[in-house]
């Protein structure tokens, strides 16, 4: 990871007086899938929002292709090639699916390229093509998630920020969506920063993982290594050694604390 696409360097972000991110640093190399794991309220979403410019960090730098984007507004950040698939989909409910997707390409002028990408999205998610003239508000949760990912792809991102794509989806649909995420990464070469609570699938999909706890990065390793670690297995993958229930719950501390 010598040349990184995105380098987040010690950012601290506040919601009013409350500090949500306490100095997070992470790197995303071109073409890499990086995942950030963490429990509720660990600050995962805040990290993504800070990167995409909705929140400004009080301290720290965010370098994208060597440029500091820490204080840029979100529409400028998007123009540089960072597309954000927000938590909870955030569709335009009264626009049709196709109009939603076209909004993803708002900043682009190349009609031929846009149509090509539209077909690409329909190929990844054929369901969207069937529903293209329906209002987005009428789609199911899974379809909305497909649409949100496609809408971000329409901006031809260099880096895709995915915030909890598994939220509220059935296990089967989660498998399907993560399959497509992997394909997008391989076929389009898009780097992906993935925030997930479903650590199992995130570690299987990503190349490199960070673990975030109460606003701090507590561990960083390639995903294969993370999957083998006992603490990760216990606290994020929910695997337990047989017969040590009491000990597991009360006695053992997390290694990094």
């Amino acid at each position: 990871m010598s040349e990184s696409l995105l380098r987040v360097d010690g950012i601290q972000t506040f919601y009013g007086p409350i500090q949500a991110v306490r100095g997070v640093s992470l790197d995303v190399a071109p073409g890499q899938i990086v995942t950030v794991l963490g429990a509720n309220g660990a600050g995962k979403t805040t990290v993504l929002r800070t990167i995409s410019g909705v929140l400004d960090p009080e301290h720290g730098q965010i370098l994208f292709e060597g440029r500091n984007i820490a204080s840029m507004p979100p529409d400028q950040v998007m123009k540089l090639g960072i597309c954000h698939v927000p938590e909870g989909r955030e569709t335009f409910p009264f626009l049709t699916v196709k109009e939603n997707l076209m909004m993803g390409a708002y900043t682009r002028r190349d009609t031929a390229g846009i149509n090509q990408d539209l077909e690409l999205c329909y190929e990844y998610f054929p369901r969207l093509k069937e529903r293209q003239h329906q209002r987005a508000g009428l789609l199911s949760g899974g379809e909305q998630q497909m649409m949100a990912i496609s809408r971000a792809l329409m901006g031809r991102p260099k880096l895709l920020l995915l915030d909890e794509p598994s939220l509220g989806l059935s296990p089967l649909l989660v498998q399907q969506i993560f399959g497509i995420i992997k394909r997008i990464n391989q076929e389009q070469g898009v780097a992906i920063l993935l925030v997930e609570q479903n650590a199992h699938i995130a570690l299987k999909t990503a190349h490199f993982g960070y673990v975030l706890e109460v606003g701090r990065i507590v561990t960083a390793d390639p995903c294969e290594t993370l999957m083998q670690r006992a603490d990760i297995q216990e606290f994020y993958l929910g695997q337990k050694e047989a017969g040590v229930r009491g000990q597991r719950r009360w006695k053992r501390k997390r290694l990094w604390q």
Binding site: S52, G53, V54, P73, P74, D75, M78, K79, C83, H84, P86, E90, T91, F92, P93, F94, L95, E99, N100, M102, M103, G104, Y106, T107, R151, A152, G155
Partner: peptide, 24 residues
Amino acid sequence: TRVGVAMQAASQNQLAAYYMGIPV
């Protein structure tokens, strides 16, 4: 029109419009 639809989009979901690079 593109700008017209973007106006609808920004009215319906301001945050998402920002994420799409629309100068809200």
